[in-house]
């Protein structure tokens, strides 16, 4: 499962909300940001690049894919 790093807790919640509409199951997780510090992201089973493309349609930027 891939972990997609997002900019904030709220953005992770927003990502999950929109991914549900695309029938993509996502779990919000707390993680460490690139360079350190607390951050949030969503864990997905699907191809993360495809998920990020879907998220870009709703103006959500993927910070990193792990």
């Amino acid at each position: 499962m891939a972990l997609i790093v997002l900019k904030s807790m709220t953005e992770a919640g927003k990502a999950r909300y929109h991914l549900e509409k695309f029938k993509i199951n996502a779990i919000v997780e707390k993680l460490t940001l690139p360079g350190g510090g607390c951050g949030y992201g969503v864990r997905v089973k699907e191809d993360p690049d495809k998920v990020c493309r879907q998220l870009s349609l709703v103006n959500i930027e993927c910070v990193e894919i792990r």
Binding site: S8, M9, G35, G37, C38, G39, Y40
Partner: peptide
């Protein structure tokens, strides 16, 4: 709860 290592207030 975010960007905790940074001393600047987050922009997000």
């Amino acid at each position: 709860g975010s960007f905790s290592k940074e001393i600047e207030q987050p922009e997000v």
